[in-house]
Write a protein that binds this DNA or RNA. Structure first.
Lengths: 152, 152
DNA sequence: TATTGTTATACTCTATAACTATA
DNA sequence: TATAGTTATAGAGTATAACAATA
């Protein structure tokens, strides 16, 4: 049974997961904000930090945002000199987005801020419990990046 | 360590929790929508279903929404004859919100829809794993209903 | 003066479609 | 014609402050 007692509807596991997810989201959001980054700007920077560069479309698909929204995110990041956009020579329709040195510098701070947030969120859990939580979340349907979860 | 390998930033536990929470939220939202209810309308109805009636302010505090937003939620529910507002005779500033018979009827459908969603989300988990997930979520800081989590 | 509920305003976020330039 | 990126528009949701009625 996934549902809890009817006496407290907010104790339903679906609501609990949604609520704790919102808390985690809010905390990460705040961590990025202290670095002057919006949540998705920070997430995009983290992705670019680990891969070096990506096409704008791939970036949008990975972040699961509409391409038209990706434009604004990257405009802001580029105005702040954190990323650069270049045309792909092999297909001039494509933009190749690369993180700059300045971007890597801010990213280091942002990653530390996110790590601090995570250590705060999960401070009461032992390492094996953190691993257990990760494992359980991974087995919730839909698993992350499954497009079905955005059907609405 | 709460953070995963740097090679995939989106595998950080903070992001995973945020993402799965968003999925759960979206699914519950959709379940309510099939009954013609917005997410918070449905949640308010569930609260009223288990308690019978609440003051408008208590309802807003429990749902953690601003009182000015609670007004609109209840206006819609009242227009649909799902709840009723009466003045509290002992303090005429207060509204006492009560679920109607019609509201209980729709609530039963909505609760079944939410249960179906939860069974879908957690279908791959054994009962003891569901209990484990509930227990782990409860020990994430901040725990539910702690006002700190909405500091932003 | 403080509290409950209400209204109004502005701001953010998002969804959608139309447009351009390239292929 | 199809695709990558861009722009513009409108809609939902929210935060904030001001307000009336009551305590």
């Amino acid at each position: 049974m996934a549902a809890a007692a009817d006496s407290d509807p907010l104790d339903r596991l679906g609501f609990l997961l949604a609520r704790h997810g919102a808390i985690a989201n809010s905390r990460v959001h705040h961590a990025f904000e202290t670095c002057g980054l919006a949540l998705r700007q920070g997430t995009a920077l983290m992705l670019l930090g680990s891969s070096g560069f990506m096409s704008q479309r791939t970036l949008a698909a990975t972040l699961e945002v509409d391409p038209s929204i990706m434009v604004g995110i990257l405009n802001d990041l580029e105005s702040a000199h954190l990323v650069e956009r270049r045309r792909d020579p092999s297909d001039r329709r494509r933009h190749i987005v690369a993180i700059t040195q300045e971007g890597r510098c801010l990213l280091a701070k942002a990653q530390q801020a996110v790590t601090d947030v995570e250590e705060g969120l999960f401070a009461d859990l032992a390492p094996e419990e953190i691993a257990a939580l990760r494992g359980l979340l991974a087995r919730v349907r839909t698993s992350p990046r499954d497009p079905v979860c955005f059907e609405q």
